[in-house]
């Protein structure tokens, strides 16, 4: 009997914490999340188009004083994204190292043409790897723009929030290609991220959490 009550209480507290952890307008306005020191940033790179847009977004960020160190998350076989991230760092004067930037490779959730029998294992491996990164690295900020892996990464960052350890700031930028509807990742994450940016005004009208501030890429 008591154990049931205890479980019920635990669930109530958990739900309460989750609701508390969800982004609200008020939280943004009073700026209680103001950061005094440089912001440890986690950047999720996808493939092809996602990476291209992400690099455009990052170009103007102040890496030297505000956004450091940086952690790029890429799929293990995505050599092109690794190269592009390195090129960007070099262009912005960064050197690879503990206090500047690092590239973390995680296994791909599903390889092209992979059998559906082994897919669950690949997904699990990718999930475990992204959990490790977020839990151990505890960044201040996660920037993502749509590749599938950003969904578990954002979800896992809620562990810190729910336990009250840290409020990892989540920002999501929907692709320029999305004019009238959100991507699957976007639809899944729109309620959970602190800032959700779209690049077409129509989407701002359609989704109350979405903000349009012009084309960003």
């Amino acid at each position: 009997m008591y154990s049931y009550l205890f479980a019920l209480l635990a669930i109530i507290i958990l739900v309460f914490r989750i609701v508390q952890a969800l982004p609200t307008k008020k939280f943004k306005r009073n700026n209680s999340n103001k950061l005094e020191k440089p912001c440890k940033s986690c950047i999720v790179l996808g493939s092809g188009g996602h990476t291209m847009e992400m690099l455009q977004l990052l170009q103007g960020l102040d890496y030297a004083t505000k956004y450091r160190p940086r952690l790029y998350i890429v799929s293990s076989n995505d050599t092109l994204s690794v190269k592009k991230a390195r090129d960007l760092e070099t262009a912005k004067g960064g050197t690879e190292g503990e206090d500047k930037y690092r590239i973390v490779r995680i296994p791909r959730a599903r390889h092209v043409g992979e059998s559906w029998l082994t897919t669950p294992f690949s997904v699990a491996k990718a999930l475990i790897a992204s959990t490790k990164v977020v839990l151990w690295e505890t960044p201040d900020l996660i920037i993502c723009n749509g590749p599938g892996i950003c969904v578990p990464i954002c979800v896992i960052s809620y562990i810190h929030r729910i336990l009250g350890i840290k409020r990892i700031y989540l920002i999501y930028v929907e692709s320029f290609a999305r004019v009238k509807s959100l991507s699957l990742s976007g639809r899944l994450l729109i309620r959970f991220v602190d800032t959700f940016l779209v690049q077409w005004p129509y989407l701002e009208g359609k989704y109350s959490q979405a903000e349009y501030k012009g084309v960003l890429v």
């Binding site: 103001k34 912001c39 990052l58 103007g60 960020l61 920002i171 800032t195 012009g214």
Partner: peptide, 19 residues
Amino acid sequence: FPRHDELAFARILDKELGL
């Protein structure tokens, strides 16, 4: 097409984070 404003995203992020 309007030119790419490199600093547009940086301005938004700086403001959101109070940086």
